[in-house]
Design a protein around this nucleic acid. Structure first.
Lengths: 226, 226
DNA sequence: GACTTTAGTAGCTAGTCGATACTTATTAGG
DNA sequence: CCTAATAAGTATCGACTAGCTACTAAAGTC
């Protein structure tokens, strides 16, 4: 009985001091999507609960994800604190956001739908800001953390992997260069399986299996935008 | 009268629901340093205040920085929410952290000292975690945001700039490569001044003056650590 | 069996990165 | 004054990288 309703509407007490919100991302039809709750009466929202001060933030977020998704996310990370936008279903002045990722093909839990991040339903302002921040976080961290791999099933073709990178980067990549870089990074290993999907030559399936490689330190990059 | 004492110790009321904390970084003697409050009775701490729900987070952090540093920071950004460590001077269950940067050479405000981040005094656990996160944030964002330039005075030599990058990266850089990359980025412009400091040839002074350059998209990097 | 489609590879070229080695300008010291 | 020392700044070379065009391979379609 530790769900949203019981925490917030617990009689006439004042609303919780803070909320914990989850932006759960996945991919579908070559689109980045986010889990949106449409079952409840009232407007759409992303999963949230009142923040329980007696539980650690990371643990609470992991549990919220498990409860609302029906499975442990493939990846989860803190997004930050949000309070500059006033509107939030909890009425709390402060919200703590987390991003999670589940593999593409995961069915949306009952009462929820996968919404294209470029075409979201109307969300409370603070939650909309969290979704924007989550997408940026995925893009920013994708080459430090294996986010693209978490968005794929455990076995995948190199073309699928490249498509996922293209989706996250928002631009096309060159096939040969992509594979050369991937080879040099020792991140995947081939399986014995092949997948033939309609036309064309069948593709070999790979799995994510990073090997320790010598610490090739990257050079200074002046990518300053402003 | 909007300082820490009045907010927290305001009679017998319960402690604030959340605190706002500031990790203010600078550089000194080729070391990254952070502003630590040592004046108050009790153990050392970094600046903080009870979070006022009626003010926006960013605005409140900017004001906290101005008030406690005596000047506007050269850069400030959100760090995130912290609640997994229990110990915090406010007793609040939740804290929101911000990182700020002031140029090297800025005098420490009264009651505060610059403490080497690699040799910190004992801080409340949650604040110590914030300092660690702040240093990581500076390192992670330094090539997207001009953090090194904000840590320097408005005019600087290229050797000083390189030292600052080396400080943030934690490793030595090659002089010619560094300057070549800098040149290609169109980030600095020379001034008419030269600085001769003891021995050796005088160095020309530069200022940060980024020019729009064509959007040279960077290639995919597989820097995955795990 | 020719054509289409997709997977995967090879080789060329332009540019990048780091090293060594050099020139220039100043102070220190005889 | 002349030389050594020190630090700023430049030039050039070779290894490596990234992206391009073009190719081969294996399946389905007609």
């Amino acid at each position: 009985m530790r769900d949203r309703t019981s925490s917030v509407a617990r009689a006439g007490r004042s609303p919780a001091a803070a909320s914990l919100d989850l932006v759960c991302c996945s991919a579908e039809h070559r689109r980045l999507v986010v889990a949106v709750d449409v079952a409840a009466r009232g407007p759409a929202s992303i999963p949230w609960q009142a923040l329980d001060p007696s539980v650690g933030l990371d643990a609470a977020a992991a549990r919220l994800a498990r409860e609302r998704l029906g499975r442990a996310p493939a990846w989860i990370a803190a997004l930050g604190a949000f309070g500059d936008q006033r509107k939030h279903p909890s009425q709390a002045a402060l919200s703590v956001g987390y991003v999670a990722v589940v593999p593409m093909g995961t069915a949306a839990p009952v009462g929820m739908v996968w919404a294209d991040v470029t075409d979201l339903p109307a969300l409370p302002a603070r939650q909309a800001a969290m979704v924007t921040a989550a997408v940026s976080a995925l893009r920013d961290r994708m080459d430090l953390v294996p986010i693209a791999f978490r968005l794929l099933p455990s076995e995948f073709t190199l073309s699928e992997l490249q498509e996922m990178y293209e989706l996250l980067l928002g631009r096309r990549l060159h096939k040969a260069s992509f594979r050369r870089a991937l080879q040099g990074a020792y991140l995947v290993e081939p399986t014995d399986s092949w997948r033939s999907e309609g036309r064309g030559r069948p593709a070999q399936l790979f799995r994510y299996a990073p090997r320790r490689r010598r610490g090739h330190r990257r050079s200074v990059r002046f990518e300053l935008l402003t």
